[in-house]
């Protein structure tokens, strides 16, 4: 456990070193003259505020969108049978097996034809397929565990698929939603390659890109880089700490698979 936290602690203490000093010669737990000077420099050198705002906005669109589409697809997967199920399950499994790196190039070409490079659409679009096929599977597993009778009863009252989703299925799998939302947040927050390919200009920076452009500063400015890394990491850690109760819970029966 200490081992897993060590890198993060090192990142934090490293970021507190005053920038511009010669590199350390020995192990230091808390650097001398620790302070927040590196953080000030971080925001001065790169428009980090703007970048954070952009990233927050992206996440604000992508997380709900991912949750909606993933839970829809998950519910469909959990309820259907026969060829419909086979088609759907096949599609999801195929997606699981395609490395994201395999479709970079031609996805770029597709967006180029659509005239959408240079906009935020290519970044958001993956949320329309649930963010990741994994999320669809998580929802499918969770929905499968709900008693069928609930759905049948509602159907007899004439409820359509959307109604079933909204008033029966979704409220019963809150832990799964928490887990998917967290993972979707992580996905959108740390997305580095898409903004790198599709966006340009200082006002279109996202947080990971801003950190990347800090990188040129070189090794004497390590505190500044580490401060940037902390700034980019902090929201993700906070989101995790907020949601961890939901899916790392103690007792059997809780947990992100919605048991």
């Amino acid at each position: 456990m200490v081992l897993f936290l060590a890198p993060l602690v090192v990142m934090l203490t490293g970021s507190l070193r005053p920038p511009g000093l010669p590199p350390p010669r020995g192990v230091e737990l808390l650097p001398e003259g620790a302070g927040l000077a590196a953080y000030a420099a971080t925001f001065e050198l790169v428009p980090f505020g703007r970048a954070l705002l952009n990233s927050v906005l992206l996440a604000a669109i992508m997380v709900p969108l991912s949750v909606v589409t993933a839970s829809w697809a998950g519910l469909a997967l959990a309820q259907t049978s026969g060829w419909r199920w086979r088609t759907l399950a096949g599609a999801v499994l195929l997606l699981v097996m395609v490395p994201a790196t395999a479709v970079w190039l031609t996805r770029f070409a597709v967006f180029k034809v659509l005239g959408l490079t240079g906009t935020a659409v290519p970044l958001i679009a993956p949320a329309l397929m649930g963010g990741s096929p994994l999320f669809v599977l998580l929802y499918a597993v969770a929905f499968r565990r709900l008693p069928q009778e609930l759905f049948e009863a509602a159907r007899l009252e004439g409820a359509g698929p959307l109604r079933l989703w909204r008033s029966i299925a979704l409220p019963l799998v809150r832990p799964t939603t928490a887990a998917v939302a967290l993972l979707a947040f992580g996905l959108s927050w740390s997305n580095f390659i898409d903004p790198l390919l599709y966006l340009s200009g200082e006002d279109a920076l996202t947080a990971p890109l801003a950190l990347h452009s800090l990188e040129l500063l070189g090794s004497t400015q390590w505190p500044v880089l580490l401060a940037g890394a902390v700034v980019v990491t902090l929201p993700a850690v906070l989101a995790f700490l907020g949601a961890q109760r939901m899916f790392l819970g103690e007792e059997r029966g809780s947990g992100w698979l919605g048991r």
Binding site: A207, V232, T233, A236, F240, L248
Partner: peptide
């Protein structure tokens, strides 16, 4: 154990 996983790739 989970915490390092949430750190964004580039950071």
């Amino acid at each position: 154990v989970f915490l390092p996983t949430v750190v964004p790739d580039i950071a």
